[in-house]
Design a protein around this nucleic acid. Structure first.
Lengths: 363, 363
DNA sequence: TTGTAAGCGTTATCAT
DNA sequence: ATGATAACGCTTACAA
C-alpha cells in the first residue's frame, strides 16, 4: 500500500488561506491544480501517493496545498473510491476490561495498516449483534471485526455478509468465515489442571450459561468438565454457578450464592477475570483465605489481574497477537487475495500468581 | 466496470431485475424510484424521514426498497449532505479503565442522538493530540469530543478548529471552546479532607507531573496542597511521587519508591484510581495494613474500585453525566444554535470505602 | 509522466 | 406532495 504523504494545516497564522476567506472547506482539488498549474488528476495522484510523479511536480503541488490550506475531502474520496479506510470492531461493551484492552490493541494494529477503527457496542444482545452484521453502517466500513457473544451456530447464515468479516473469539461457527480463535479449551484445561495439581478437588465454576450450547461459557465450562473427568473428578452440579454478563458484580453475586448454598469447595475458576475478581472480593469479605481456603483462577489476563490482592492466576489469550492476526486476516480479505477462509488459534499461556500459589510467580 | 453494467441492466430492464442475484450494491435510488414509479428525490425524502409524504407513496417506496434489497449508500449521502453522523472521541488510551468506561458512556449517549462514535487514541502524546485537532479525519466527523492530557494553555490556539469541538476533563484552557469539566479541585479536596478528618496527617500523593503547570496532575496536586494548607498541614516534598502515565504499574513503582525513600506517611492519595490500586498492591505486599497503617484514596471511581481488596475510597466524577452533557453540548454546537461557548462542571461525589475506613460504607 | 472526460449516488434548489 | 435538474469533489479509464 502507498503511504500517504502527511500534510499540514496552516494554523492560526493564516494569511495563507486567502483563497477561501478562512471559511473552511471551499478549497478544492481544482483550486490546487489551478494554483500549481497542473491537472486535478495530478493533484490527486500526489495526494494518493501515486509513485510515478516527477519530484518537481510533486513539490509544486504540495506547496500549493500548503499555501491554499487545502484539505482533502475524505467524504468525496470515500464515495468515489468506494472505500473508507475504516474497519468496524463490534464488541459487547468497552466497560469490560478484556474488550477495552482488545480494542486498544486492535486500534493500534489497524493503525499499522493505515486503517481507522469504528467501535460498535452490542451489549451482547442478540438483536444488536444481528444488526451489526446487516447494518447500513456496513456501507461505511471496509471490513468488520466481530466478537459475537449472543449469536450461536444457528445464526451462521447471517455471517454471509457482503463486507469482509473476521470473527474474534470462540470457535462457534463452522465457517465459511475467517476466524481468530482463542484456545479456550486448552487454556481452561490448563487452569483446571493447575488447580488439580495444587491439590484441589472441589472446584467451582463461575459464569456458566445454562441452556446455551455454544458460546464462550459453554466451551470453557465443557473444557472444565473434561479436565475434571480426565483427573477422575466428578464436579457437583451445584458448583457450577450461572452469571449472565461477566462483570465483577455478577461474579460477586455468584460467589455469594455459592457460599450460601453451603456446598464445600476448595477452588473456584471464573470463566473470565472480572468474575474471578468479583469472587475474590466476596471470599475475602467472608474471611476466607486465598488460596489457603479457596484457590481462584480466571481467564483473560487483564492488567488488573497482576495488581489485585491477591494477584490472579489466569489464562493469557495474547490479546495483542489476536488483534494483530485479526487485522491481518481482515486486510487480506479486503484485498480480495484469498478465497478460502482461514481459522487461526492464537497461543495462550497460563499465568500462575498468588491466587493459586500464595506467592508471587510468573507475573 | 461490472458495477456499471449491472446498474445499466437494471436501468434498461426495469423491474425485472428484482432478484439482484445477491451480487451486492448495484441497486441505486434511481432503481428504486423507477420500480416504485416515483422520482429519486421522493425515495430520498422517504428514506430521510421527510415528513410531508403521502402514506401510500411512502409504503410503495418502502416496498420497492425491500423487494430490490436496496441499501442506502452512506458514503454518497455523507458526501452530498456534507455530514456523516459520526462524532470523534479522542482519549489517551482505552486500556485505562476510566477512559474505557467513559467511551462506553459516550457511545451510549451518542446513540440517543443517532450518532456513531469514532474513537481515537492519542496515547497522551502531545504530537498525537495536535494531530487529532487538525487531522484530515476531522473531515469525516461532524464533531469532536476531546479529552486532552498533554496539551497545555499555550496550545489554546490549536483549539480553533473548524469542526465543532467539546473538551472533556480539566479546565486547562480559558476558552473559547465548549467544555465539560470535572470538578477536580473540589473532588480532590473532599478526598484530602476526608483523610484528614480520619486523623491522617502525612498524606503522600502519587502521580504528580513535575514541571507541568496545567493538566490534571497539576490541578489535582494543587488542590491537595490547598486542602493540606487549609488544615494547617505542610506536606513534605518527598511525599509527592511522580508517575508518568497513570497506570497500575506506575502507581506500584511510585509506591515502591516512596517506601524506599523512608519518609513516613499514614495516607496516600492516588491522582487516579489505577495509581491508587497499584499502590495498594505494593503496600499489601510489604505487609502494611490498609487503612490501619496507610489509608488510600483515588480519583475516578472506576468499577474496579468497588471490588478491590480493600475497596477503594475515591471521587466519582459521574462519567455518565459527563458523557451525556458532552454529547448534548456537541450536538447543539453542531446544529449551530449557539455562538457563545459554555463550560459545565459535572457534579462529583466522594465514595467512602474500606481503604480509608476499614469497613464497607457508601458503596 | 500527465491530462481529458465521465461520472460515482445522493441531496438541494426550485418549480409545479 | 412530488419532480426535474444540477451539482457535491473526487477518482477511474483511457488517451496523449
Amino acid at each position: 500500500m502507498w503511504t500517504r504523504s502527511e500534510r499540514f494545516r496552516a494554523d492560526t497564522d493564516g494569511p495563507s488561506d486567502s483563497a477561501n476567506g478562512g471559511l473552511g472547506l471551499a478549497v478544492t482539488m481544482r483550486d490546487v491544480a489551478k494554483h500549481a498549474g497542473v491537472s486535478p488528476k495530478t493533484v490527486s495522484n500526489v495526494l494518493s501517493g501515486f509513485p510515478h510523479i516527477r519530484e518537481t511536480t510533486r513539490s509544486r503541488v504540495l506547496a500549493s496545498v500548503e499555501e491554499l490550506g487545502y484539505q482533502l475531502n475524505l467524504s468525496a474520496r470515500n464515495f468515489r473510491a468506494g472505500r473508507t479506510g475504516i474497519i468496524g470492531l463490534a464488541v459487547p461493551e468497552l466497560s469490560l476490561p478484556y474488550f477495552a484492552e482488545l480494542a486498544d490493541a486492535v486500534i493500534n494494529a489497524a493503525e499499522q495498516h493505515g486503517l481507522t477503527v469504528m467501535i460498535e457496542q452490542t451489549g451482547a444482545r442478540r438483536e444488536r449483534e444481528l444488526t451489526v452484521l446487516s447494518s447500513e453502517r456496513g456501507q461505511l466500513v471496509d471490513g468488520l471485526l466481530f466478537s459475537p457473544l449472543a449469536l450461536g451456530p444457528a445464526d451462521v447464515d447471517h455471517l454471509r455478509t457482503t463486507t469482509p468479516l473476521v470473527l474474534l473469539g470462540e470457535r462457534i461457527f463452522r465457517g465459511p468465515v475467517d476466524h481468530v480463535a482463542i484456545d479456550n479449551v486448552a487454556g481452561t484445561q490448563a487452569a483446571v489442571e493447575h488447580l488439580i495439581a495444587a491439590g484441589r478437588r472441589r472446584i467451582a465454576v463461575l459464569g456458566v450459561h445454562p441452556g446455551e450450547e455454544a458460546g464462550t461459557a459453554a466451551i470453557r465450562y465443557g473444557a472444565y468438565l473434561e479436565a475434571m473427568a480426565a483427573a477422575g473428578l466428578k464436579p457437583a452440579k451445584k458448583l457450577a454457578m450461572p452469571a449472565g454478563p461477566w462483570h465483577r458484580s455478577t461474579g460477586a453475586d455468584a460467589m455469594e450464592q455459592l457460599l450460601a448454598g453451603g456446598k464445600r469447595f476448595d477452588a473456584v475458576i471464573g470463566l473470565n477475570d472480572t468474575l474471578a475478581l468479583g469472587a475474590i472480593r466476596v471470599l475475602t469479605r467472608h474471611g476466607l483465605r486465598i488460596p489457603d481456603d479457596v484457590a481462584v483462577a480466571g481467564f483473560d489476563d487483564i492488567d488488573e489481574a497482576r495488581y489485585s490482592t491477591p494477584t490472579l492466576t489466569t489464562v493469557d489469550p495474547s490479546r495483542k497477537e489476536i488483534a494483530r492476526l485479526a487485522v491481518k486476516l481482515l486486510v487480506e480479505r479486503m484485498a480480495g487475495d484469498r478465497t478460502e477462509w482461514r481459522e487461526i488459534t492464537a497461543p495462550y499461556a497460563l499465568r500462575v500468581r498468588e491466587s493459586t500459589t500464595g506467592t508471587a510467580a510468573n507475573a
